[in-house]
Design a protein around this nucleic acid. Structure first.
Lengths: 121, 121
DNA sequence: ATCATTATTCGAACAATTTAGAAATAGCAG
DNA sequence: CTGCTATTTCTAAATTGTTCGAATAATGAT
């Protein structure tokens, strides 16, 4: 806790936008949710493919995008690749939305959030 | 509160993805955040343009995208258009991410969330 | 070494997004 | 009606994303 309230300059707008964009595709969002439901043990790529019924190359492309944003991690297990949702990253994203992009109506998650505490006129 | 826990079938994956995509652009995310900070009184388009320093047509395009997803509402006030963040929509989105896309690590916002309480395989 | 399995990378066609200048529209003042 | 400010729509170019077959790489078994 080096700082109680965000410095306000730009937290990481570009990175946050990139993560939101990665999730902002029906296939990728479905993919991510499958991984979340699979829990900490993860789910193999082949299983994801079966679930969505899309060609492997397309799947791989989307998976790569999610991985590039740190939303998903992959681990080799023999010939299969186990995919896992990176909850740390998702928490960061949800935290950002709560802190910077919500107002009074959103207090359920952070009753002490400053909301709009900058100079302004 | 018509339903305590989501039915689980597919909540609105496509719509959620569309909203995430709308926010998944640096300019639009910055735009949205400016509106959040402006609070319930809103902020005129011209003010947004000054803040970001981009051409009006580009700004209008992004604004239209946010509006199309229900993230932003616009209201005429004489010659200026007042923009407001739609907190209802954002709450729905954050709620979805919490409910469907987070796991044990994400309990800070919803200590009672079921996480992945479906039939499993 | 060869083969089968699992998944990625390459390449190319197609589609969508992003950007922004110029023209058009909306409201208000004189 | 004319001019003025505020904002959108039109149009078009450049860039980027999506899709998927075919070729490639990694792993383990025979």
């Amino acid at each position: 806790m080096t700082q109680t309230k965000t410095p306000l300059p730009d937290v990481d707008l570009t990175q946050m936008a990139a993560q939101l964009e990665a999730l902002g595709h029906p296939t990728r969002l479905a993919l991510y949710r499958l991984m979340v439901r699979a829990g900490p043990e993860g789910i193999p790529v082949g299983r994801l493919q079966e679930a969505l019924g899309i060609p492997a190359s397309t799947l791989s492309h989307h998976l790569a995008k999610l991985t590039a944003q740190g939303l998903v991690s992959r681990e080799r297990q023999a010939t299969t690749l186990i995919c896992r949702a990176d909850f740390d990253t998702m928490n960061g994203l949800v935290g950002f939305l709560n802190d910077e992009c919500c107002a009074d109506s959103c207090t359920r998650a952070r009753p002490d959030a400053p909301v709009a505490a900058d100079g302004d006129a």
